[in-house]
Amino acid sequence: MNAVPLWLIVVIKSAIVLFVVITTFAYSMLFERKVMAWMQLRPGPNRVGPWGLLQPAADAAKMLFKEDLTPKTADPVIYRLAPFIALFAAMGTFAIIPFSESPAGVWSVGDVNAGILFVFALTSIGVYGISLAGWASGSKFPLLGSVRATAQMISYELSMTMSVVGVLILAGTTSLVGIVHAQYRLWFFIPQLVGFGIYLITAVAETNRAPFDLVEAETELVGGFHTEYSGLRFGLFFIAEYMNMITVSCIATLLFLGGWNAPFGLTFIPGIVWFLIKGGLFLFFYIWLRATLPRFRYDRLMAFGWKVLLPVATLNLMATAAVIAAVR
């Protein structure tokens, strides 16, 4: 096309995506605090800047200047490494998520043809961040938290993958762009209503948020896997959690809500706006969920995952496959 080398384009794209995503993270945090507060009859953060809009900056400054403690019993290398694994996995998925499309091409850093597999591979690595953090802290509450994290995330990831395979069968491709193109006429949450529901539930469990936040469970485990972490390292876990939230919202938008496809033929509004609206709705849903439902008991969480979600997801997958096979 022109003389700009490919690596430079990738670097610039990455920088833009990283900037946008980190800003989104910061304000999704404020958004969550505001919405939760309103639902609990409180005004929420309103002291830093107008309507508390500079609160994320104040929080970041606080995190930066806090003391970074390492417990004596901790494994020093893994303890320091774990937050970076979590953050790397959380940020990595944004390398392939397509945000929109224009005649010039797809708006993403890299369009991978096995995109959805890449996303699942990275989120699986994210489990390591959390379980290693708890294990390396060398005290009991983090260890309990990480044991829970490992069991919970592995069992729910199974159902999540099952629910997504239905979409892959319908679209006939694992490329995220291809899946969005396949939804041009009909968004997949209609034929895959069961799969959509399962994805919604398992995604909350995957991101360790209420009502599935057994991994942190302040009331029983102090802070769960990040009990010993402080300062910037704690901040990294915090960022990773919210990034994961944004990731599952984006994936849900791409797989089930037609990505940047406009509803009702409203194509004069650009695709990126639709993408943001749909993703924002998911974020709001997760916050709403957190403000509404109390935390699960651990044995019920496991029973629900293995005895309800997995069979339903499997049946849904088999039914989808059968219908597609019959139609073709």
Binding site: M39, N46, W288
Partner: peptide
């Protein structure tokens, strides 16, 4: 029951807050 809970929390979103700054 869960939907009723969602409705309750959503309703409180728009209730005037009692907090006095």
């Amino acid at each position: 029951a869960i939907l009723a809970g969602f409705r309750t929390t959503f309703g409180y979103l728009f209730v005037k807050k009692p907090t006095i700054a």
